[in-house]
Design a binder for these strands. Structure first.
Length: 371
DNA sequence: AATGCGTGGCG
DNA sequence: TCGCCAAGCAT
């Protein structure tokens, strides 16, 4: 019961201390310079599972490139993916664009200000809905993220496992009571800011905490035991082979990843899943569907790519083809090495591309000495 | 409810 | 070196 958690809790003291602390100590972040719901929305999507320091440059570039909801709605998919390159969770930006189009079609171009309407937008879940409603529109709606659950688990001494979906709902219920009705924006952001700066996952700064006097975990000396969070499984390993195929124009072959799933719609070098001892066969089999014949050369690199649930080991090979540079599918294309930067690749491939360019430089130099 | 979906930083 | 983490959402 949420009632039992806030019963005998000095709500007003907590609210006032938190909000005053936030307004005096808050960081000066780019998305705090605007009241434009679209820009606040973009920042909230970027900040999902992503650190502030990582987001800042992406946010600034994104807003410069897509200053309004309309600019985003009409942009090319390849352009928005390129703007998101390196941020991860790429479905976020595709959902964001779909949602921008939804706002144009269904809400006359205005980001809606009710929980029901805003929750109908692609990629806007309970947290993001509450964040936009409170920060952009001043509505007294909870915004429960990992910071908020950690802070409240400590302050209110909640022992529920914060990895369970039901626990987020418990905190939402608590917050409808606990939220500061006159300054929901400062209150919600204050909870998150406190979690980011003071009430950190390890070694929380209780000695300088603005709500130390009302914190139940601190009173009980349990701030290091909370929150309770069950562990994730460790990523499963897969072995893959990628091939850098070059034609005699010096262009390399890239292909677009599938519509859905991991790294959806990003580009990559042709890649197959195969154990080390079967990779050469697997590669030839893969290229049997193309209209040219492949001459496979050496393995040149090995790259690790760790996801939250997967671990790839990619062996990188080089290969060449003759004149015929047509390809079998429309989702593949030949690209000059200098133009690879126009396409959005996963981070593993940025390492591969970097190494490829270094090899090219080296060969160029050796050729110069040879003559 | 449980799982899939990225990346970089840190102790 | 490596597990854990950081302003979650879709299915």
């Amino acid at each position: 019961m949420s009632q039992s958690y806030v019963e005998d809790f000095s709500q007003k003291t907590f609210q006032v201390a938190l909000v005053e602390w936030f307004h005096s100590q808050k960081r000066n972040l780019p998305w705090r310079q605007t009241s434009d719901p679209y820009k606040i929305w973009v920042s909230e999507i970027m900040l999902q599972q992503t650190r502030v320091d990582t987001v800042i440059p992406y946010y600034q570039a994104f807003i410069r490139q897509f200053p309004t909801l309309l600019d985003l709605a009409k942009a090319d998919e390849d352009a928005i993916l390129k703007a998101w390159e390196g941020l991860g969770y790429y479905s976020r930006v595709r959902n964001l664009q779909k949602a921008a189009q939804q706002v144009l079609e269904q809400f006359n171009g205005v980001v809606p200000d009710t929980r029901e309407e805003i929750s109908s937008l692609k990629g806007v879940g309970p947290y993001t809905a509450g964040a936009i409603l409170s920060i952009a529109y001043g509505k007294a709606e909870p915004a429960v993220d990992g910071n908020v659950m950690r802070v409240l688990a400590r302050v209110l001494l909640v022992n529920d496992d914060i990895a369970k979906p039901a626990t987020r709902k418990l905190f939402e219920t608590i917050l409808y009571d606990l939220i500061h009705k006159e300054d929901p924006s400062g209150f919600n952001q204050g909870l998150m800011e406190l979690g980011a700066l003071i009430c950190t996952p390890t070694s929380p700064g209780c000695l300088i905490c603005p709500v130390q006097q009302v914190c139940r975990a601190y009173s009980a000396g349990k701030q290091d035991e909370l929150p309770v969070k069950s562990k994730k499984k460790k990523p499963k390993s897969k072995e893959l082979a990628a091939t850098i195929v070059q034609n005699d124009n010096g262009k390399v072959l890239i292909e677009k990843r599938p519509e859905n799933g991991l790294l959806a719609r990003l580009w990559q070098f042709p890649m197959v899943e195969a154990r080390r001892d079967e990779q050469v066969n697997a590669i030839y089999e893969q290229f049997a569907t193309y209209k040219f014949s492949l001459k496979l050369e050496d393995k040149v690199q090995e790259v690790e790519h760790v996801f939250s649930h997967l671990k790839w080991t990619i062996d990188v090979y080089e290969g060449t083809v003759g004149n015929q540079s047509s390809t079998y599918t429309s989702e593949s294309k030949w690209v000059e090495i200098e133009r690879l930067e126009d396409y959005a690749f996963p981070v593993s491939h940025q390492k591969i591309i970097e190494a490829l360019k270094e090899r090219q430089q080296f060969e160029k130099k050796m050729k110069g000495y040879g003559r």
